[in-house]
């Protein structure tokens, strides 16, 4: 498995593939079992976000290094309708689809870094990172 890969997302089946690949890559970095589960779950949420709102998009996973800490980066991007009000979308319980509305704010809680950029009519890009604990502290 390379240090970087992108998974095309066009159906709900890709959600399972995305989180499995994410877990595999993260396992190589030495994350604990609990952290692997957190990462896989966060990937599941952002990938589902693509399927539910944009229908198709891409999920890119890579190993990142910053100073002497290593981690995993997850980028979910689509050219879907975009999110008109990001602040609202990031509130717990808010959802325009039929989900619990925990998807994005939930994923944010599971990861160390979370950034969302969205433009109506152009698409959405979510960037998340999680660092291997030993090197952070």
């Amino acid at each position: 498995m390379p240090d970087e890969l992108c998974i095309p997302v066009s159906s709900e089946i890709d959600i399972v593939t995305a989180r499995q690949k994410g877990r595999e890559l993260a396992a190589r970095l030495g994350f604990s079992n609990t952290e692997l589960t957190l990462i896989a779950t966060a990937i599941s949420e952002v990938t589902r976000n693509i399927v539910e709102y944009a229908r198709r998009g891409e999920l890119c996973l890579s190993i990142v290094q910053q100073g002497n800490k290593r981690g995993i980066s997850v980028i979910a991007s689509d050219r879907g309708p975009g999110i008109p009000n990001i602040k609202l979308a990031m509130q717990d319980g808010y959802s325009t689809g039929h989900s619990l509305g925990l998807g994005l704010p939930g994923a944010k809680r599971l990861m160390d870094e979370f950034e969302i950029v969205s433009e109506v009519g152009k698409g959405t890009k979510v960037t998340m990172k999680k660092w291997v604990q030993n090197n952070v502290r």
């Binding site: 957190l38 925990l102 599971l110």
Partner: peptide, 14 residues
Amino acid sequence: IQPEVAFSMVQLGL
């Protein structure tokens, strides 16, 4: 439900 999964679920708010 596995320990890691339970932990992740409550973190997610589920």
